[in-house]
């Protein structure tokens, strides 16, 4: 008897799909759309509305103020240092976790998540306690005339801490699904470590890596709490864009804080667009 010719037994039969319920479907869609509109889109639009409410001239004037210019430069500098460092670290960590077995792997994974679970303010405070006046490292730093807290090095450290997991977290699942076989194949064909990395590993994770970097960058530029604690708020010296927005807001300027905020909002929009593009790109290539 050919099993294929046996009629479907009731046990094997596919479950009958629920009849379509248009009311429930549209209700759910309406709730989701309404929620996003009120909580996400409306505030975003409002930022732009407020920024331009007093006209282009004022908007431009707020952006061209020297202190704002300095905040832009500082934000770019901090992100420019911490994002590449975290990208390199994230690559190394995800490679180690995905491709090797070693003692303490779970511990490393848990440590990676620490910055996600710790309040940024507390993170900033940790650095103050470590490097600040009277901190653990203070005598050594003073002896060498190094200033970390209330200066740029402290802000870079705090930003690195907060954005530490983004690249690694993005790459670990990508590397785990790829497995080791492609690398092993390259080795059996005579390729050395560097060649394998540049020609085999990196191309196969590039979209995941870009995505991780984009997210890491957005967070690095937008970080407030940790940087707030270590920066010392010196206008024109240690104010990044988010700190500048806050300061302007408390100066009761009607348009300036919103004008500077539009820069951060634009960064957010660009990040979301890039994210969508990268997801589309990586889906298309697998």
């Amino acid at each position: 008897m050919n099993p294929a010719s046996v009629p479907h037994s009731p046990l094997r039969a596919a479950p009958v799909p629920l009849p379509e319920q248009p009311l429930a479907k549209w209700l759910l869609i309406a709730v989701a759309v309404l929620f996003s509109a009120v909580f996400l889109l409306l505030p975003l639009v409002n930022v732009f509305y407020q920024a331009f409410s007093s006209g282009w001239a004022l908007y431009w004037k707020a952006l061209s103020e020297p202190d704002t210019g300095s905040a832009i430069r500082l934000t770019l500098l901090v992100a420019g240092i911490s994002v590449p460092l975290n990208a390199a670290f994230g690559l190394a960590a995800s490679w180690a976790i995905a491709k090797f077995d070693f003692r303490g792997k779970t511990l490393l994974l848990t440590l990676l998540d620490l910055p996600f679970s710790i309040s940024p303010v507390v993170a900033g405070l940790l650095f103050v306690l470590l490097f600040g006046a009277g901190g653990l490292m203070a005598p050594w730093l003073e002896a060498h005339h190094l200033k970390i807290i209330f200066a740029i090095p402290g802000m870079v450290l705090a930003t690195i801490f907060v954005t530490f997991p983004y690249v690694a977290r993005e790459l670990i699942p990508v590397m785990q699904t790829q497995g080791r076989e492609q690398e092993e194949a390259a080795l059996t064909l005579g390729a050395g470590g560097w060649r394998t990395f540049w020609h085999v590993t990196l191309p196969s994770i590039k979209w995941g890596l870009f995505y991780g970097i984009v997210l890491c960058n957005a967070r690095a530029m937008g970080e407030f709490g940790a940087v707030f604690v270590v920066s010392g708020h010196i206008a024109g010296q240690t104010d990044t864009l988010p700190l500048r927005v806050e300061k302007l807001y408390y100066e009761f300027d009607p348009a300036a804080p919103f004008a500077v905020a539009t820069l951060l909002a634009l960064l957010a929009v660009a990040t979301v667009v890039l994210k969508a593009f990268l997801e589309w790109k990586s889906r298309r290539e697998t």
Partner: peptide, 10 residues
């Protein structure tokens, strides 16, 4: 070496 799941460079 020929791998079970081919391991071609994607």
């Amino acid at each position: 070496f020929i791998f079970q799941n081919y391991a071609l460079f994607k």
